Simulated assay, not measured.
Amino acid sequence: MDDEQIRQLIDAVDDAGVAVMAVYGREIAVTQKADDSPLTDADLASHRALVAALESMEPRLPIVSEESAEIDFATRQTWDRYWLIDPLDGTKEFIKRNGEFTLNVALIEKGIPVFGVVHAPALPEGPTTWWGGRDSGAFKRVDGGVVERIRVRQLPDPDRAPWRIVGSRSHGAETFEAFCANLPRHERVSMGSSLKLCLVAEGLADLYPRLAPTCEWDTAAAHAVVTAAGGDVLNAETLEPLRCNQKESYLNPFFIVCGQRDGRWEQALEESLALPAANAQ
């Protein structure tokens, strides 16, 4: 994507964030989707705003959204490039009004998230946007201020500084506990939505093991930011890069986000995945 397309995309996501915040500021009506996950007017308002903007930018490019995902795999298999969006990632956090929710837009090429924008419109420090791509590097902007280039940090010596492990605010797992139990000295940070991946991208966390279900739209945008910042998003079992649009289901395998590969956490991950709780997923 060129600079003008990036600007247009960031502006579109910012505008969708304004639509989300209009709902955030009033009583939130919640319904349940077929999978029992919550749905609000904000999900739908963001979906409509993002789809309209993307269709204007790239009229011929297909769009997959969490709120319009009934596209059969036979069709999706024919796509080399498409948009993958989550209009409101962290709906549970949105309902709790803790600010830890995001709008996610990713450009996918041949199964790889090559560009992504993550926008958090309700953080205490102000609306915050992360973006990055294969050819552009990774960046962060807070409350319309200075654009900051971001990068993952080098994994510290745990005897001098603890590793920082980020986990879900709403989804705990016995497998996650087992993983952490086998790590060197570390501290934990809890966070909702795709913000967890962004913490790794900007060097505020070292590892994010996701050992519970997610879908591709939950992760693709922040995945692109992480890789643009020098990190990796890896299949937890194979330690190969996570891919999109490889199967009928949109479900991700378990995965781990890292700023740096290290045999100590790789061994801990292997041991945690061998537990019955992991195999039962």
Rank of each mutant, 00 (worst) to 15 (best):
H223D: 08
K33T: 00
T78L: 14
L183S: 10
G132K: 02
N245C: 09
S65N: 10
N252M: 14
G172M: 08
G116D: 11
D157N: 14
V118K: 05
A74C: 04
A221D: 03
R185P: 07
E125G: 11
D2W: 06
G231N: 03
L251N: 08
T214A: 13
K140W: 04
L61P: 04
A277I: 04
L251T: 09
P113I: 04
A201P: 04
D206R: 01
A280R: 09
L50N: 10
V18I: 07
A212I: 05
R149W: 01
W163L: 06
V147L: 10
F139M: 09
G231C: 07
A173C: 12
S168G: 07
P213M: 04
Y82I: 03
A274L: 05
E270Q: 15
C258H: 10
L234W: 02
H186C: 02
S56P: 03
P127Q: 00
L123S: 09
L39S: 00
G231A: 02
E55K: 15
A161E: 13
L50H: 09
S136R: 07
V146R: 14
L199K: 06
A222C: 00
G132P: 07
N279W: 09
L103G: 09
K140H: 10
S46I: 00
T128K: 07
W130G: 00
Q246T: 11
P162W: 03
A69Q: 15
L88P: 00
A173W: 01
A201I: 06
Y250H: 14
G99E: 00
P184S: 04
V117C: 07
A12L: 13
A278G: 12
E187M: 13
P276M: 10
F139E: 02
D135I: 05
T31G: 14
C198M: 13
L239A: 05
P59T: 05
L39W: 05
M191C: 08
G126K: 02
D14I: 11
E270D: 12
G203N: 01
R141M: 06
S190N: 14
Q32N: 11
R264N: 08
T78Y: 00
E125V: 13
I10G: 02
R188F: 05
A69N: 11
A201S: 01
E270S: 11
R151H: 08
H186F: 06
A106D: 12
Y82E: 12
T227Y: 10
